[in-house]
């Protein structure tokens, strides 16, 4: 049973001009294997910072993170990342991008090839294996990024607004795909998003963060992700609890934004 434990994390950025920003304060969280957590919050509340700490790109000023009991000290293959955009290697074909992780590990090339073929099939890009990534649309590129992350078989997948740069329709399709992959692979996923709908639809657990200092404001457990696995997402949205939770979270974030504005004016 793998478990991701975020234990009382604080992060303070010391700026060159002497002041400092408290990006995160006393954030604690436990994530069981196979859980899908979506994270919402107003801009600047420390979502990316939190994810970077979990990924191991940043060391927190206080607290620690453990995965399966081992302390996180740097990036590693067990924590895969999917970025908003621009993280694919444009000097490699789609196939080479997806097979990058296994190749770096020195995995058997034939096995890697089969795995890559399978994953590209799953994300619906089998026809584009040999294409250059810059020949693909934004949505296709994100599917390559997903496949590349999965090919490496990480324990935890971290996503920072993976669908943020896509149009509404593509985004909806990608949401279904993420749910499908989540169910099929049973990975632990942390997904940061700006879209309340996306957080509701995809998050088995939903975390709302508050800014200044960045902290956990409220947590929800939601049924929609499970429903969405075999239902059309638009059906899920008709669920009465969906609408009420949505309103609740929207006004929560709205209030936070108001408060930030007020503080700035004062």
């Amino acid at each position: 049973m793998s478990e991701l434990a975020i234990d009382n994390i604080s992060m303070r950025f010391d700026l060159p001009n002497g002041s400092s920003v408290q990006a995160l304060k006393n954030v604690s969280l436990n994530l069981k294997s196979g859980e899908l957590l979506s994270v919402l919050g107003p801009s600047g509340c420390g979502k990316t910072t939190l994810l970077n700490i979990v990924a191991g790109f940043l060391a927190p000023t206080e607290g620690q993170i453990t995965l399966n009991g081992d302390r996180v000290v740097g990036p590693s293959a067990e924590r895969g990342m999917v970025f908003q955009q621009g993280a694919l290697f444009e000097w490699m074909s789609v196939r080479e991008n997806v097979g990058f992780g296994p190749r770096m590990k020195g995995a058997n090339p034939t096995a890697t090839r089969e795995k890559v073929d399978h994953l590209l099939d799953v994300v619906g890009l089998s026809e584009f294996k040999e294409k250059a990534v810059y020949e693909l649309s934004g949505g296709m590129q994100q599917r390559v990024a997903l496949a590349r992350c999965l090919a490496n078989e990480p324990d935890v997948i971290l996503m920072d607004e993976p669908l943020g740069a896509l149009d509404a329709l593509t985004r909806e399709k990608m949401q279904s795909l993420v749910l499908k992959l989540w169910k099929e692979t049973g990975k632990t996923i942390i997904l940061i998003t700006h879209s309340v709908e996306e957080a509701l639809l995809l998050g088995e657990r939903l975390l709302v963060m508050a800014p200044r200092p960045g902290r956990i404001h409220k947590e929800y457990r939601l049924p929609f992700a499970d429903l969405g696995v075999d239902q059309d997402l638009r059906e899920v949205k008709k669920h009465p609890e969906y609408a009420s939770t949505r309103e609740e979270i929207l006004s929560m974030i709205w209030d936070m934004e108001e408060e930030i504005m007020g503080r700035q004016e004062a």
Binding site: G74, A77, M104
Partner: peptide, 20 residues
């Protein structure tokens, strides 16, 4: 992000030099 992605995919420093 490319460097981060490569690290998260398990690449070593040398591999990042060579492939990224």
């Amino acid at each position: 992000t490319k460097i981060h992605a490569a690290y998260s995919l398990g690449a070593s420093k040398w591999q990042i030099m060579r492939h990224v």
